[in-house]
């Protein structure tokens, strides 16, 4: 167990380190002179020099990297070029807002996917199954940025149940969470279906049925808990999709989270903020995946603690 724990944590730390390096390089991917891009063409040479100096871009690259890395160790992410505020403060404002949306979306996704996947598995090859899977296929194929406006039209304008956008009142989270949640529910439902089907085929399920358990109870009592195990890992992975998708969904709904911060920063050519937002979301993603892996290991009695990550 300890060995597994240590290797898993070490590999997560390595991934974080790699992410930091790549995010650091992001600013150097800007074609031409990054300072010129940030200031706009035909900027005054003096302005350019002072920004270059402020960002440390006049130093050799390894030194820049070291300064960036040292700053991160002190949780210093620099200052926003646009608003002049400390990026750390900006992130602290935005992180809970995105996290809130993601968690509610997750609840929506599980709430939709669980019944759909279960029904589809238990009634395999019936119209119910095809209906549920067809729905899932649709859910996978509807882009967020199309579904969002349609939901606004219906939920906010025609029904008047929810605010149009922004974060105002408790119910403003509903529409963005539905948008994000359905896409994720679609993939989850498919996984739950195949996972439950697999468990249904196993010996202990046949035994349970042979013992006279009704098939509904057998599924709920025995199959589901076992089937949910592999889904846990997927959930962790899906959170990445959720956080990535949140960028678009937050833009559609003007939800003041990290994703919107990043898009605004791109439009403002405020690259240090873009870097920080990407870093922040990616690190969250790594940590969540680490936690789901550990949780999986803890839940699953069959796991062998000698291998590294699969």
């Amino acid at each position: 167990m300890t060995h597994f724990l240590v290797t898993r944590i070490l590999s997560a730390m390595l991934a974080i380190f790699g992410v930091i390096c790549l995010v650091f390089l992001l600013i150097h991917l800007i074609p031409g002179d990054p300072v010129e891009v940030m200031l706009g063409e035909s900027a005054q040479p003096t302005d350019k020099e002072s920004l270059r100096h402020a960002l440390g871009l006049d130093l050799p690259i390894h030194q820049q990297w070291w300064i960036y890395f040292k700053g991160l160790l002190h949780l210093d992410l620099g200052t926003s070029l646009f608003s002049g505020r400390a990026i750390g403060d900006l992130l602290i404002e935005r992180i809970p807002v995105t996290l809130y949306l993601s968690l509610v979306s997750l609840v929506v996704a599980i709430g939709l996917a669980l019944p759909l996947g279960l029904v589809a598995a238990v009634r395999q090859h019936t119209p119910l199954d095809y209906g549920a899977m067809g729905f899932a296929l649709f859910g996978m194929s509807i882009p967020n940025f199309w579904m969002g406006p349609l939901l606004i039209l219906v939920g906010a304008l025609w029904l008047g149940w929810f605010p149009v956008s922004g974060q105002e009142g408790w119910n403003s989270v509903v529409l963005p969470a539905l948008t994000l949640g359905t896409a994720m529910a679609a993939i989850l439902a498919r996984m739950i279906r195949s996972s439950v089907l697999e468990v249904l085929g196993e010996d202990f399920m046949r035994t349970a049925r042979a013992k006279g358990l009704s098939s509904t109870r057998a599924v709920l009592q025995h199959a589901l808990p076992n089937a949910l195990l592999p889904i846990l890992t997927l959930l962790g992975l899906q959170l990445g999709g959720l956080l990535g998708g949140a960028v678009i969904t937050e833009t559609v709904f003007a939800w003041p989270g990290l994703g919107l911060l990043m898009i605004e920063a791109i439009q403002q050519r405020d690259y240090p903020v873009v870097q920080a937002a990407v870093l922040c979301i990616s690190v969250t993603y790594i940590v969540v995946n680490l936690l789901t892996d550990l949780l999986y290991a803890w839940l699953d009695p069959r796991i062998q603690f000698t291998t590294g990550d699969g």
Binding site: A15, G18, I30, M262, V274, I281, S282, Y285, I286
Partner: peptide, 18 residues
């Protein structure tokens, strides 16, 4: 592993932005 540590769409947006 490091590349997979980024949520895909997010990285694409950041890259396209840069």
């Amino acid at each position: 592993d490091i590349m997979l540590a980024f949520p895909g769409l997010l990285l694409a947006i950041a890259l396209a932005g840069a």
